[in-house]
Design a protein around this nucleic acid. Sequence first.
DNA 1: TTAGTTATTTAATCACTTTAATTATAATTA
DNA 2: TAATTATAATTAAAGTGATTAAATAACTAA
Lengths: 404, 404
Amino acid sequence: MPSANLDLIRAINQFNILNSIRIRGAVSRSEIADMTGQSRASVTTITAQMIDKGMIFEKNTEVTGERGRNRVLLALNPDAAFVVGVKLAASKMSCAVCDMQGETRGSIIEYEDFRHKNIDFITGYMEQIIHKTVEKAGLSMDSVSGLGIGVPGVVDSSTGTCHWSPLYDAGDFPLRDRIFEKLNIKTFIENDANTLTLAHQWFGEGKGVDNFLVITLEEGVGLGIMANGQLFRGSRGFAGEMGHVPVAPDGEECVCGKKGCLATVLGAIAIVKQAKRAAENGEWHREGNSEITFSEVIGAAKSGQKELAGILRRAGHHLGVGLSVLINIFNPQKIIISGHGVEAGDLMFNAMEEAVNRHTFSDMLSLTKIIVPEWQHTDWAKGAASLVLQELYKSPFNTIRPVI
Amino acid sequence: MPSANLDLIRAINQFNILNSIRIRGAVSRSEIADMTGQSRASVTTITAQMIDKGMIFEKNTEVTGERGRNRVLLALNPDAAFVVGVKLAASKMSCAVCDMQGETRGSIIEYEDFRHKNIDFITGYMEQIIHKTVEKAGLSMDSVSGLGIGVPGVVDSSTGTCHWSPLYDAGDFPLRDRIFEKLNIKTFIENDANTLTLAHQWFGEGKGVDNFLVITLEEGVGLGIMANGQLFRGSRGFAGEMGHVPVAPDGEECVCGKKGCLATVLGAIAIVKQAKRAAENGEWHREGNSEITFSEVIGAAKSGQKELAGILRRAGHHLGVGLSVLINIFNPQKIIISGHGVEAGDLMFNAMEEAVNRHTFSDMLSLTKIIVPEWQHTDWAKGAASLVLQELYKSPFNTIRPVI
DNA sequence: TTAGTTATTTAATCACTTTAATTATAATTA
DNA sequence: TAATTATAATTAAAGTGATTAAATAACTAA
């Protein structure tokens, strides 16, 4: 247990100031003092240090026309630090370089099958894509303050160990340290749904929201939980295994052995599987014999293929039932739905909405906003980058590399 | 936002020291320094103040036979403070006086129907029971440092307002302030399941466990959530509305309008309702015509009444399904089952266990212990008392009344 | 121009922990 | 038995970050 000493209070106050500036965009010293509860003198001292380090700068003086001296607005220097985020998925890897404000300064996505591949192949690939992305952003590796990696599966972020992942069969693997050895950059790893949840807390729909959930629709279904402003990981990082919540008691058998898990109707794998069956049964007349992709199914459904549209509606319905369970248990302010599965659009989400409305006590439902924001592939990598940004804001003076 | 200053670090360090003593029972200054990370000098200073105030005392010197000066063990003075907890239920009120170590020093339970009663009647009743219990414990009201109240329903503990309760139809009600006006004792209110969860964290099965759930089986079903060592209340205090999680899609209609909610099969109300139907159908041959009570149903079921045993087994089964959902989502270290509903015993819990085993991925299940501790009526009031003890430990010097 | 108002900075002070030195008390060793 | 070693607890001095109060800066209104 670390003791509370002067270092701690300095860290807290620095964080609060930096965060106030981030949240407000540009803000004066007096306002910071009011927001953080610190004395004006103290704000002057700390902001002076931050200006000195190049983390923030005096943007302009605000002319309000009110009496008294005008406020000098302070703003973040977006170039104060750059961080890299990498998202590892079954069939692709994406990488993004973000600045201090969470803006993407360069990104790359590459398609490759990583399932059952050698671990060295994956870490090597990662090293390459990082170099390429940093170069694309016009930066050198020296200017990178940290690296965040989002991994599907169960991850112990404190030890940097990957315990289990759908990607490979190996046991515990020290991913963080292995990457650090290669690049010599401070590295953080985390479950992918959690990185996205953090990204929303810092830069997205979760700004200023203490309790929200993030549903990720990819190959499977993921859940990120923000509780009391903190990421909730469960006792061993297993929290949020939404996929195996039973929603259809008379449904199909799941890989886990149970029947009617959410994972059997929702997520790209389940949807493609159902589409394949429809094609085999002749309910979906399909040209050619190539492997069915998720995008293809969505496209056909949107073009009016009734059977496929039904599959999406059913998926939406069950998602809605699952959400109603979550709303009852968590009473979140927001539920944010992300992942490339949102491509399914209204076909899925109308059915979802209907199911949520039907299955949730209206008093509770009225407290929860369900949001499907615009989705980009690189959001995942940006999420991984936020993992570092978070650490950076927490102890900026220790983490930020000097701007050369 | 409160700024981080010297007061904060003192509060944190005091809390950590007091808590170390509480957890270990009796512990030396050096060990405290090691546990909390503080310097020995600092521990000496702070513990001296605490001894001065009568909060802790030098219990004895530990003779280990090791080299060097013997350690002086410090222990909590249980009489340093007394707190009162009151639990309000539909048909009873219980009250307990606890000491600094959470030991019950006196308790009273009284049966009375509080449904749809005047609020003044309830607060008046509360005032009386508190006076009686304090007297029974051999104490005066002056020696009471604080009062905690556990209320079924939705409570905003920060404002002390009771927003909604199954007990009465009135709207928002400032219960905390109303009681404070009567007794002039620092008062805290909280949802009843949450008080029990706190009690477990501080003095029960949740000691040292960061992530656990408490299921309360009373008239209905309640859920208390401990996430990252913090009570999780949701965005408006509605979190943990477990009762309306759907578990039996083809089940009975619930008061909330949906079908097959957990509340339709579990909890005293639902079970008595089902028993009543069994009696009406002639499946349960019952003497007399009095109102059926929960205890009577349990008794008859345990004596071999097959239909009633079936009702309990079904309830246990659905509870098990509900728990499997919770395990998937929360991955808790423990699930603690409490409330007078545990009287149902093995009849219910065997079925529960079977359902949990069947519906939960075994890798996840192995991480969660499900516990049904011994249950006493006054545990509720003790829970409410912990609400105050928690505050007391947090800022001991401000809250503890001088011992006269 | 002057008074009033707000923003920011500076200087002095305070409160807390830490480090280093010191005292206290025990077992071990010669 | 006396010196040595080890551990516990205390004390004194030093360091540090926030706060308060006073000073300065920069503006508006009259």
